[in-house]
Simulated scan of single mutants.
Amino acid sequence: MTAVGREGAADDAPETSSVRQVSRVVLLDPDDRILLLHGFEPDRPTDTWWFTPGGGLEGTESREEAARRELAEETGITDVALGPVLWKRHCAFPFDGRRWEQDEWYYLGRTERTATHTGGQTDLERRSVSGLRWWTSEELSASHETVYPTRLAELLRTLLDEGPPDAPVLLETERV
């Protein structure tokens, strides 16, 4: 299991400068709402942000296997049609006293289920995630809260208007 931080950092990730391989899920319900988790810095609970479910690869699992496992652990949702990789990005950020470098792939996911269960979260996730919420594109666009990736509202609107891209879109590197 992995814990989710500012960008989905794991409590068992190495403390070296190696780049962590991460899979994320842009999970949409039948009404095209996106599921986001509300995270915060464990030592600073007022430092909050929203982010997509996902986390680091474990052992020899594939990116798709990691996406499915992380989604199940963090949300309890296992009945998902996992689609293509929408976006890829590199990010770096501090979380829980460490510096994280990640190579993230964002998969499209569709589900009929909107009920969530967070019982599979790790200890660090329980200390750094305050909840989950389904957002409409309009709500996300109107929000002034911090969301990762930072252009998620625009990316979601494009996805809903145009469908998945023919090839994954490379997003700009984000460093916090």
Results as ranks from 00 to 15, higher is better:
V19C: 08
V19W: 11
R24L: 13
R24Q: 15
V25W: 06
V26A: 15
L27W: 07
L27I: 08
L28T: 06
D29Y: 04
R33G: 01
I34C: 13
I34T: 14
L37E: 08
H38K: 14
H38E: 14
H38C: 09
G39H: 12
E41W: 11
D43K: 13
D43G: 10
D43L: 14
D47E: 13
W50N: 07
W50T: 11
W50S: 08
F51S: 15
G54V: 07
G55A: 12
E58I: 04
E58K: 12
G59P: 01
G59Q: 02
T60G: 05
E61V: 12
E61K: 09
R63M: 14
R63F: 09
E65V: 12
E65C: 05
A66Q: 05
A67E: 01
A67D: 01
R69Q: 09
L71V: 10
E74Y: 04
E74Q: 15
T75I: 03
T75S: 13
T78A: 00
D79Y: 00
A81H: 03
L82V: 15
G83Q: 06
V85Q: 07
L86Q: 04
K88E: 13
K88P: 00
H90N: 09
H90R: 12
C91M: 10
C91W: 03
C91E: 04
F95M: 13
D96Y: 10
D96P: 03
G97M: 10
G97S: 10
R98Y: 07
R99I: 15
E101S: 09
Q102S: 09
E104T: 13
W105K: 12
Y107Q: 11
L108I: 08
R110S: 00
R110D: 04
T114F: 00
A115N: 02
A115E: 04
H117Y: 05
G119H: 01
